[in-house]
Amino acid sequence: MSSELLPHTLEPHPVTGMYNGKFGLWLFLASEVMLFGALFSAYILLRTHGDFPSHEETTLNYKIGALNTFLLITSSVTMVMAWASFKLNEPSKGKLYLWLTVFLSVAFLVIKIKFEYLHKIHHGITPDTSTFYAIYYCMTGLHGLHILGGVIVMLYFLLPGFGLWRKNPEQFTNRIECTGLYWHFVDLVWIFLFPVFYLL
């Protein structure tokens, strides 16, 4: 079945008010809430269970964390601006914003890997150092993989996937909207990860 023939591929369903892709993406995000929920639960447990290093004993640099928070928030704005531009039928502006988002997220990843992970590993701080670093590497690593996934999707829509804009601009804009929803969620997770690991 070619997807063009399926109902509600483009037009929103009268009851839910969403097209298929958007509803599907929200459901996926609901499952992501549970995924990160389990990890946050693990964090709370480890932290309250003893043998968890106090904040003073850990060496995360909150300045780098704050910088990365800022990068991600900015990327969320550029993402939503990219969607708005496509919606307003300004594809070149939309593309520019999308490239900006890619740039900001790559910057986030480079900072995360080069100045945090590699720096720490160089100083012998690895996941098995303590439960704090174990959950830190695990959660930020999983979050980083989400960023990487988002970057790959954005690059797809910018390069080979952009042909869809000429064929069906509405569907393309919808896909950007879904990418955006995912992206804002990833941003939202970081908004919680930052204080939890860097400040508390």
């Binding site: 609901a30 992501e32 389990a38 693990a42 003893g50 690895t126 996941p127 098995d128 174990a134 695990c138």
Partner: peptide, 28 residues
């Protein structure tokens, strides 16, 4: 949709315990 992700998370934690000797599930 809602029950499987926690096991996915737990699976990742156990993988880390096995691969990197972390102590998510290992008592002192």
């Amino acid at each position: 949709l809602l029950a499987f992700p926690p096991l996915e998370a737990a699976g990742v934690l156990q993988l880390m315990d096995r691969a990197f000797d972390t102590s998510f599930f290992m008592p002192t």
